[in-house]
Design a binder for these strands. Structure first.
Length: 495
RNA sequence: UCCCCGGUAGCUCAGCUGGUUAGAGCGGGUGACUGUUAAUCACUAGGUCGUUGGUUCGAAUCCGACCCGGGGAGCCA
């Protein structure tokens, strides 16, 4: 028996237990279920449930009932509600439901008398939560829409089959990425969005400033005085978390970043966004071969999980978007990646007898047509091209002993080309300093980065993967603007 | 940024060698019919033909400029 004078704690425990029990009972009587649960057979036939969602289609039968297909985003399929004409709001409301209306339906789970679904809901009550103001102009109609049009209604496109599926696959892929790294002992490092350094020494940056553009403070020489700015210096949105994550790598050993990245490049293509998400793992005590293995394991893990958890969505992509969508992922999972040196790749291309538009020769980067030949014709497998000419690679990539190549790699996938780019990092203080000088980088800005080579440096390596490009590969959608909720491109940032 | 293509009903498009009142399918409304499944059938409403100048008796149609969108290239993730 609890002693209410001396020991109040057991009383609290009992009270909280009692509350929890009663809450559970309330929830059980309400039985609000997701459509995924109902269609997945989690709700027993014969039991009462409440479902909520948005109408996809309505069909009436003069025999005295209407069929309503409802979707709540929880799964690809729609749940069929059967609404009888005896319902009090049948004539006034139910027969006027159109695509996009939101509703709450309480009813009984029954085995379907029709074909096409195993279970359906015999509606007991149908409460219209939100009408569509003007059904005539509601943009998301039950018909085929162009992706181009749907981009203009980005706030409504998640109500379509395609974008619902993209949303679930995007989530599943993100989750798989975190799982992969977590299971292997990596730490997720939240590198800064605002930065004062340009990670590549190239690329256009978005400026971050609170200065009054109409009245800029000036130095004596007439230049803009950034000492007056919010951070007391110039600041930008990050173009990569790599440099920052390297520091954590040289303490935590295995780390990764996964977050938004910004590029102000004026490139308007199906593969570029001004704001996109990037995955960047970094491993210590590792070389380029370790990195190649990581990239291969990583891709195979993520694809396996997505196929496993989003089978219905993937079947939809295979049916409507790209017939190869599932098969090419399966094939990639089963196939060993081919590794070859850049030098070897160039000679294969030179001897191929193919009539390439651009030449393949030492010192030039591989073109899309070259990448496709290597993966689709020559190797018929994903290819990791390694050790590129030093001149075409960034300052932080490790100079190989030959003095001519950098320890960089690209993972090329059949059907899309480059999907991952990475390198072993230059860990030698003197070499790094020399290369920074050659690239004209400000030693002071990067002094902290150089410090990492001064204090307990180790060989380390990492790669970058554009998350949306990965999603394009998974879904078969060819435009990067269709795999991110609100795409930002030059001249375009609505919503 | 460069090259190519496009902008006609809420959406997808036809019409474009200039010539009465600009069409179809889907979607919306009304009705018929059916345990229906992107149902079917009938009727019906709905358009400043991207904007703007020009050529012409006459422009959705031809020409110029501009705006917007798409594809490709470069760059990259």
């Amino acid at each position: 028996m609890p002693d209410f004078l001396g020991l109040p704690l057991p009383c609290w425990v009992l009270l909280r237990l009692a509350v929890r029990v009663s809450m559970t009972r309330i929830l059980n009587t309400m039985q609000t279920a997701s459509i995924k649960q109902v269609l997945g057979g989690e709700i027993a036939v014969g039991s009462e449930v409440t479902v909520q969602g948005w109408v996809r289609t309505r069909r009436d039968s003069k025999a005295g009932f209407s069929f309503i297909h409802l979707n709540d985003g929880s799964t690809f399929g729609n749940l069929q509600l059967v609404a009888d004409k005896d319902l009090p709001n049948y004539d006034d409301e139910i027969r006027h439901l159109t695509s996009g209306c939101s509703l709450t339906c309480r009813g009984k789970v029954v085995e379907s008398k029709g074909r096409g679904q195993s279970v359906e809901i015999q509606a007991g009550t149908v409460e219209v939560v939100g009408w569509v103001e003007d059904p005539d102009t509601y943009p998301v109609q039950p018909k085929k829409h162009s992706f181009e049009f749907l981009r203009t209604v980005a706030h409504l496109r998640p109500r379509t089959n395609t974008f619902g599926a993209v949303t679930r696959v995007r989530h599943a892929a993100a989750r798989a990425i975190h799982e992969f790294f977590d299971e292997q002992g990596y730490y997720w490092i939240n590198t800064p969005i605002i930065t004062s350094s340009d990670a590549e020494g190239a690329g256009q940056l978005f400026r971050v400033s609170t200065l009054d553009l109409m009245n800029l403070p000036r130095t004596d020489e007439g230049k803009i005085d950034f000492r007056e700015d919010f951070f007391g210096r110039e600041a930008f949105l990050t173009v990569s978390g790599q440099l920052n994550v390297e520091a954590y790598c040289l303490a935590m050993s295995k780390v990764y970043t996964f977050g938004p990245t910004f590029r102000a490049e004026n490139s308007n293509t199906a593969r570029h966004l001004a704001e996109f998400w990037m995955v960047e793992p970094e491993i210590a005590f590792a070389d380029l071969n370790d990195l190649a293995r990581l990239a291969e394991d990583f891709l195979k893990f993520v694809f396996t999980r997505v196929l496993d958890r989003c089978s219905e969505d993937m079947e939809f992509f295979a049916e409507r978007i790209n017939p190869e969508a599932i098969e090419r992922l399966r094939k990639l999972i089963e196939t060993d990646f081919v590794r070859m040196d850049y030098r070897e790749a160039v000679s294969i291309l030179a001897d191929s007898g193919e009539n390439f538009e651009y030449p393949a020769e030492w010192g030039l980067d591989l073109q899309t047509e070259h990448e496709r030949y290597l993966t689709e014709k020559h190797c018929k497998a994903p290819v990791v091209v390694m050790n590129y000419p030093d001149e075409i690679k960034a300052f932080y990539m490790r100079l190989n002993d030959d003095g001519k190549t950098a320890a960089a790699l690209d993972v090329l996938a059949p059907g899309i080309g480059e999907i991952i780019g990475g390198s072993q990092r230059e860990e030698r203080l003197d070499v790094l300093k020399r290369r920074m000088a050659e690239h004209g980088l400000d030693a002071e800005t990067y002094s902290w980065y150089v410090d990492l080579r001064r204090y307990g440096t180790v060989p380390h390596a990492g790669f970058g993967l554009g998350f949306e490009r990965l999603l394009n590969y998974i879904t078969g959608l060819t435009n990067i603007r269709d795999v991110i909720p609100y795409p930002r491109t030059p001249g375009h940032a609505p919503f």
